[in-house]
């Protein structure tokens, strides 16, 4: 299969702290890849580096999207190439309606697609289209609108940073279904999460610890390892120990 994203020897340092190190992954077009890791593993930083946000320029390594070196490209250039990011805690926008917000990233501004996207995240278009994307929305509502916005973009690659956090348990199945819908409508998904039950919808899984990928495998294999080892990990900051123990 074709590689859509390739990251080689990525390294990010903030102050004296190594946030991402020795990071290598390949994501295949049309797949759902999950990066699973506990809080503080560097998952959101990885999303920001991949999207090229300010303050997240890698100290070393290369990022290739569709074979193009995007390491030094701006956020806009990356988006125009076909990738986007759904933030874990999305920004609020005073005065911008849900309809306008979703349409910003759409190539055609079809209102039917805006409505479909809202329905995908279980929000009634009649109630939400003309609301503003400001602080009057709850965190969960804002998050769903973020997912609807990236869904309506039909990006080639979408990085979903913890799309399941702040979402009630009843809505979790809908979010999982939406992630599968991303794939079915032609998007490749890089899913970042700390919930192993979400990882099951992926094709490939990576386990991230202290800024490194320490294990790659099937979602079931990585989820089981995560449940057994990482949820009560006493190896924080020392993934090499985990690797050694795992090898034993």
């Amino acid at each position: 299969m074709e590689e859509i994203l390739k990251v080689t020897d990525l390294y990010l340092k903030k102050g004296n702290k190594e946030i991402i190190k020795n990071f290598n992954i390949t994501v295949e077009r049309g797949s759902i890849s999950v990066v699973l890791g506990v809080n503080g593993a560097g998952k959101s930083s990885l999303a920001y580096v991949l999207m090229g946000l300010s303050g997240y320029k890698p100290d070393n390594g290369k990022i290739f999207f569709k074979g193009i070196d995007i390491t030094d490209k701006t956020v806009t250039e990356r988006a125009k190439l076909g990738m986007t990011l759904a933030w874990q805690t999305p920004a609020s926008f005073e005065g911008l309606t849900v309809r306008d917000y979703i349409q910003i990233g759409m190539k055609n501004k079809s209102i039917a697609l805006v409505k479909e996207a809202l329905e995908k995240v279980a929000l009634d278009p009649i109630l939400y289209l003309n609301r503003t994307v400001d602080k009057s929305l709850s965190g969960g509502e804002r998050k769903r609108i973020e997912l609807a916005a990236v869904y309506a973009m039909h990006p080639e690659l979408v990085i979903l940073d913890e799309p399941d956090s702040g979402i009630d348990i009843l809505s979790l199945e809908k979010i999982k279904k939406l992630i599968v819908d991303f794939k079915e409508t032609g998007s490749t998904v890089l899913l970042i999460t700390h919930r192993d039950e979400v990882a099951e919808i992926a094709d490939t899984a990576f386990l991230m610890c202290s800024g490194e990928i320490i294990k790659q495998g099937s979602p079931a294999e990585i989820s089981n390892f995560f449940k057994d080892e990482c949820n009560h990990c006493d190896h924080k900051g020392a993934p090499e120990k985990i690797i050694q123990e795992n090898v034993k």
Binding site: M51, L53, S54, T74, V75, T76, R78, A79, K80, T84, L85, W87, P90, A91, F93, E94, G95, L96, I104, G105, T132, A149, M153
Partner: peptide, 20 residues
């Protein structure tokens, strides 16, 4: 940056935020 990640240039993103 959220709007840039939707494909707007920095100038377009500033205009959209200010207009809002």
């Amino acid at each position: 940056e959220t709007l840039e990640a939707r494909g707007l240039t920095e100038e377009e993103a500033i205009k959209a935020v200010v207009s809002g």
